[in-house]
């Protein structure tokens, strides 16, 4: 199983929205490499014909009726907002695609 490079860690950090500092990149690259080396043990079973288990419960079809339940008030909804304006969550500029 391949190890993990500093560049890969930088890519992961970008995907995960973590603005890592340079020294963190080095630090994490080493640690993640160790961890990945250890957890790679699972790949022994990659080719085995074993069904995957994504969940420990055998439940299916848990659904609720289409009935309205009380929502939060806008004040409650916005109570934790770092910034707000016009009863909306105010966020920094979103880099667009246009």
């Amino acid at each position: 199983m391949p190890g993990i490079s500093r560049e890969e860690v930088a890519h992961l950090a970008k995907l995960a929205r973590l603005e890592l500092k340079d020294e963190e990149l080095d630090h994490f690259a080493g640690q993640l490499d160790d961890i990945i080396g250890a957890v790679a043990a699972v790949s022994d079973v990659a080719d085995e014909d074993v069904p995957p288990t994504s969940h420990p419960l055998p439940l299916t079809n848990v659904m609720r009726p289409d009935e309205v339940r009380p929502s939060l008030t806008p004040e409650q909804a916005l109570s934790g907002a770092p910034a707000q304006e016009q009863q909306r969550f105010k966020v920094p500029q979103i880099l667009g695609e246009e």
Binding site: R88, K90, Q93
Partner: peptide
Amino acid sequence: IHGASHSLL
């Protein structure tokens, strides 16, 4: 969206 200073959600 382009050139906006901020957005409201």
